[in-house]
Amino acid sequence: MLFGTKDTGPVADAVRRHWVDTHLPSWARPYARLARWERPIGWWLLLWPCWWSAALAAIAKGAMLPNLWHLALFFIGAVAMRGAGCTYNDLVDEDIDAQVERTRSRPIPAGQVSRAQAKVFLVIQALVGLVVLLQFNWFSVVLGAASLLPVAIYPFMKRITYWPQFFLGLAFSWGALMGWAAAFGHLGWAPVVLYVGGIAWTIGYDTIYAHQDKEDDAVVGVKSTARLFGIFTKPAIFALYLLATALFALAATLADAGPAAFAGLALGALHLAWQGLILDIDDPDQCLKLFRSNTVYGWIVFGGFVLDAAIGGL
C-alpha cells in the first residue's frame, strides 16, 4: 500500500535540490514531502522550545550541560511529530490546499499519495513519536500526550478565527514545558513563562509566513493574523517579538540564569528587530526568508542558555 505513490515533483516552497528530491527513491519522496523533510525549518521551530527548556533546566539544576540524551530524544520527536502534524494538517486541508497557489503542489492535492496512504504514514510517524515519549518520566508522558489537543484543533482554526497562529503557538511551544518536565518530573513558573513567550514568538513568525498566501486566503475564506493585522503588521510583529523577549528574560530570571543567558537573549532580540525592520509584507520571497531565519534566532538563544549553564556549573 505504501509503494503506490506518484512523484510529480517538489512542492512549491521547498528547499531546492534538497536530498529528499535528489537521493530518496521516487516512491519515498511523496512521503518525505508530506512530512516536510525538505523544509526543516518546521521541526527546528518545534524543537527550539524543547531545547531552550532543557537548557534552562540545566541552569536551574547547576548542571554544566543540558541532558544530551533528552536533547537527542527531543530532536527525533520533533522531526517525527512535526511530520505527523503536517500529514494530519494536509488531510484536513486538502480542499483548501488545492485552491492556494503555494500549496496545491503538496502531495495530497497533487495526487502524489492517496488519503489512505497518508493516514498509514501518519500512524507510523505518531508511533515513532510515542516511542520517544515513553523514554521520559511518567509526568512528561502525560504532559506530552496532552499536547495532542492543540495539535488536533489547530487545522480547523483558520476556518473559525483570525487567530489560528495563536493555536499554532499552543502546539509548537509545548516543548517549553517538556524540557523542564523531563529534567525535574514536574513544572515550575520558568517553563510556563517560557511557554507563553513561545506562543508570542510563534504568532510573530507565522504571521510573517502567512503573508505569502494572504491574497489566496482572502479568496478561499482562510483567516490569519496576516489578514487581521494587514498594514499594521510591522508594529504588531514588533509588539509580539518584544513580548516574547520580555517573557523569555523573565523565564531565565526564574531559572536563576546568569549574564550569558541574557546576553544571548539580547543578541536574539537584535535579530528579531532586524526581521521587523526589513519586513516587506508584499514580498512573498522575503517573508519566507525571514520566517526561515528564526532558526538562527533559536541557535542564538540556545547558545546563550548553554553557555550560561556551562559557566554556572564550573
Rank of each mutant, 00 (worst) to 15 (best):
W163A: 15
Y205K: 03
F156W: 13
A236I: 01
G230W: 11
I237L: 07
Y162Q: 15
Y209D: 08
D206P: 02
F184E: 10
W174M: 07
I208F: 05
R159L: 10
A218W: 02
F232G: 15
A190K: 04
F156A: 07
A176E: 05
E215N: 14
A183M: 01
S224E: 07
P191W: 03
W201A: 09
K234A: 01
G179E: 02
F156L: 14
L228D: 10
F166E: 12
P164W: 13
F156D: 12
A226K: 06
G230L: 02
G185E: 02
D216A: 06
Y209Q: 01
F238E: 07
A210S: 06
D217T: 03
Q165A: 08
W189I: 12
A171K: 07
H211W: 07
I199D: 00
Y209M: 07
M157T: 12
F166K: 13
Y195H: 14
V219Y: 12
V220H: 04
L228E: 10
I208P: 02
Q212R: 04
G230P: 06
W189A: 15
Y195N: 09
L194V: 01
F238P: 01
D216G: 14
D216V: 00
H211Y: 03
L228I: 13
L228G: 11
K223D: 09
A171H: 11
A236N: 13
H211E: 08
R227Y: 08
W163L: 15
V219Q: 10
F172L: 11
T233L: 04
W174I: 04
G188F: 03
I237S: 03
A183D: 08
M157E: 08
A181E: 03
A190R: 03
L170I: 00
G188N: 12
L170G: 09
V192G: 09
R227M: 15
G197A: 03
M178A: 11
V196R: 13
W189Y: 09
L170W: 08
T207V: 09
W163V: 14
W174V: 07
K234S: 06
V220E: 06
Y195S: 14
L194T: 00
F166V: 15
F167M: 14
F166W: 12
P235K: 01
